[in-house]
Design a protein around this nucleic acid. Structure first.
Length: 472
RNA sequence: CGGGAAGUAGCGCAGCUUGGUUAGCGCGCAGCGUUCGGGACGCUGAGGCCGGGGGUUCAAAUCCCCCCUUCCCGACCA
C-alpha cells in the first residue's frame, strides 16, 4: 500500500530533501537564468505573511516605507572604499540602454545604502529632521557563484532599512532595537525559530559598517543560517554622501547611520528549521492554511458537515480549507497536506459523524485525537497555539543539544560539524584563530558575552564567547 | 570561478558503450468502472524539437566541438 518515501529522507541526503520539499510543497522553481527563482503561489503566500509581520514591527519602531530606484550610478559605489570592495565582485552592471552604450554604466542594486543616502543628504538639514527612518521592500541582485533556492539566489526579495541619527548612541540603540524587537521577536514568535543574537567579527561584518549585529539560527542538518543583520554604519556613508545637519548649537555635524535587512532567505530557514521527512511543518502564525477539513466521504451528510465545520472555523478567524476531493484516496490527500505543512487537519467521515466527533491531527507532533463537534472550533484554536509553541520548543531543544562548548580551536572545529561550537573569543584574537576555523569550513557566526547577552560595539574579544559553525 | 556528476513526457529513470524503421518504463495526468478512515485497482487514452547550437555520416538521443542549466565539494557572499 504505502509507496516509497514521499521525499528523500533528511538523513539520507539533506540537500536533496530540501530540493524535494521545494518542488513537492510547490514553493519555488528555478528560473531560466542561473540563480533566479520563481516563487510559486503557496510559497509566496508564506512570504507575504512574513512580510506583513515584519512590516508591522518595522513600523512600530517608527520607520516608514518608501521606494528607491533599481538602477544606481556606478560611481555611487566607488565613494565608500570598503563598500565598493565588498560588493564589486557581485555587481550586475548595465552597460547598454535604448540600443546605445551608456555614458556611465548603472548598477542593479545589490543593496541601497548609496542611493538612499544620496537622498537622505538632501532631506536632512537640521537635528529636527532626525532621526530619519526609512525602509523599503525591494528586489536586489548579487551575482552568485553558487545559488540555492531561497538561501542564496542572484535575485532575491528583502526589506532594507536605512536610518540617520543625530548621535552615535542613538544609532546604536536603534540598530539593537531592530535586532531585538523586529528580527528576534519575529523569528521566535512568528517563525518559531530560536536565534543566537550577537556581534559579527571584523571579517564577517557588512562592507562599510562599523559594527554588524546578527541573528543566527540552526538548521536540522547542523548548519547555521544567518537570518537577519542590523548594521551600525558610523559616519562612513554620511561623510561621503554629505548627510550633515545643524545641531542644537548651530554646529554642522555628520549623521550617524544604521542599515538592516532580512530576505527571502527566511523561507529557507523556515523550511530547514522545522521540516521533516513528511514535508514542511509550518507554524500556524504563517501557514496560509491553518486547518484543513478533510471529508473522508461526501455522502450521508458528511460533506455538508465538513463544509459547515470550515465555515465555523473561518468565522472564528482561522484560515481553514475544505478538502472534498473524494476521487483521490484519503491517503494521498493527507500526504499532500502534510507535505504542505498544514498545522491542523480535521478528519470528518461517516464514523465520526455517527459519533458526533471529528479527528484532529497535529502536524507538529503527528498525534491524532477525537473531539466532540460542538467544541471543535475551540479545540482547533487551542491546538494552533499549542502547535506554535511546540515547534518553538522542538527547535529550542535541538539548538541546545547541538550547542557545545569548546576549549580549543580543534575542539571547536569538531563540535561545529554538528552544530554550534561555543569557544573563548580570545582564541580568535589577531585573526589566526579565525583562519584556522575558516580552513575547516567553520565561521564565527556571532560574538556574545558568556551570559548570552550582547557585547558592546567595541568590547574586546578577551572576555567574549565566539559561537562558530558551518553555515549556509 | 576550480574539481566532480548530470540534462530524454509534469516528476523519476532506461536507451548511448557497438549510430539504423513509429524513443521506452514507473509515477502523475484525462475518460469510464470498481473502490474509499494513511500514497487503491482495472481498462482506454493524451502527452517528446532526446537542454541549445554547430559538425561527422547515406543516417545522430547515441560520435566530436562550443554554449546553457541543475546537483555535490571548494573559494566568494543575505
Amino acid at each position: 500500500m504505502a509507496k516509497d518515501d514521499v521525499l528523500t529522507p533528511q538523513a539520507v541526503d539533506f540537500p536533496r530533501w530540501y530540493q524535494d520539499v521545494l518542488a513537492k510543497a510547490e514553493l519555488a522553481d528555478n528560473g531560466p537564468v542561473r540563480g533566479t527563482m520563481v516563487i510559486r503561489p503557496y510559497g509566496y503566500a508564506i512570504w507575504e505573511r512574513m512580510q506583513s509581520q515584519l512590516d508591522d514591527r518595522i513600523k512600530a519602531t517608527g520607520a516608514q516605507n518608501a521606494y528607491f530606484p533599481l538602477f544606481i550610478p556606478e560611481s555611487y559605489f566607488r565613494r565608500e572604499a570598503e563598500h565598493v570592495e565588498g560588493f564589486s565582485p557581485e555587481l550586475a552592471v548595465v552597460t547598454h540602454g535604448g540600443g546605445k552604450k551608456l555614458e556611465e554604466p548603472v548598477v542593479v542594486r545589490p543593496t541601497s545604502e548609496t542611493i538612499i543616502d544620496s537622498f537622505l543628504a538632501k532631506w536632512v538639514q537640521s537635528y529636527r529632521d532626525l532621526p530619519l527612518l526609512v525602509n523599503q521592500w525591494a528586489n536586489v541582485v548579487r551575482w552568485e557563484l553558487r545559488p540555492r533556492l531561497f538561501l542564496r539566489t542572484t535575485e532575491f526579495l528583502w526589506q532594507e532599512g536605512h536610518t540617520a541619527h543625530a548621535t552615535q548612541e542613538e544609532a546604536h540603540r536603534y540598530a539593537l532595537q531592530i535586532l531585538r524587537e523586529v528580527y528576534e521577536d519575529f523569528m521566535v514568535r512568528v517563525l518559531a525559530i530560536p536565534v543566537v543574537v550577537g556581534r559579527k567579527t571584523e571579517r564577517e561584518r557588512f562592507a562599510g559598517a562599523t559594527t554588524t549585529w546578527t541573528a543566527e539560527a540552526m538548521m536540522r542538518d547542523g548548519k547555521a543560517l544567518q537570518m537577519g543583520t542590523s548594521h551600525e554604519l558610523g559616519q562612513n556613508f554620511a561623510k561621503v554622501f554629505g548627510i550633515s545637519f545643524s545641531d542644537e548649537s548651530g554646529q554642522q555635524a555628520y549623521a550617524w547611520q544604521t542599515s538592516w535587512g532580512a530576505s527571502t532567505r527566511l523561507m529557507g530557514a523556515l523550511i530547514m528549521a522545522h521540516g521533516d521527512d513528511a514535508g514542511l511543518r509550518l507554524p500556524p502564525s504563517l501557514a496560509p492554511v491553518q486547518a484543513v477539513v478533510v471529508a473522508v466521504r461526501t455522502e450521508d451528510g458528511v460533506g455538508e458537515t465538513a463544509e459547515r465545520l470550515v465555515a465555523e472555523l473561518r468565522s472564528a478567524g482561522l484560515r481553514a480549507e475544505l478538502d472534498t476531493r473524494t476521487q483521490l484516496s484519503f491517503g494521498r490527500r493527507v500526504v499532500g497536506w502534510e507535505l504542505k505543512g498544514v498545522p491542523i487537519r480535521v478528519e470528518m467521515g461517516p464514523r465520526d459523524l455517527a459519533a458526533g466527533t471529528a479527528v484532529l491531527y497535529r502536524r507538529d507532533d503527528g498525534t491524532k485525537s477525537p473531539v466532540a463537534l460542538p467544541s471543535l472550533v475551540e479545540e482547533v484554536k487551542r491546538l494552533t497555539e499549542v502547535a506554535q509553541a511546540s515547534l518553538l520548543d522542538q527547535a529550542r531543544q535541538r539548538l541546545e543539544n547541538c550547542t557545545v562548548p569548546a576549549a580549543t580551536l580543534e575542539e571547536a572545529v569538531e563540535a561545529a560539524q554538528a552544530g554550534f561550537a561555543a569557544l573563548p573569543a580570545a582564541l580568535i584574537e589577531g585573526g589566526a584563530g579565525e583562519d584556522r576555523l575558516n580552513t575547516a569550513g567553520v565561521t564565527v557566526r556571532a560574538l556574545q558575552r558568556p551570559d548570552g547577552t550582547l557585547p558592546g560595539p567595541d568590547e574586546s574579544l578577551a572576555g567574549l564567547v565566539a559561537v562558530a559553525a558551518r553555515a549556509y
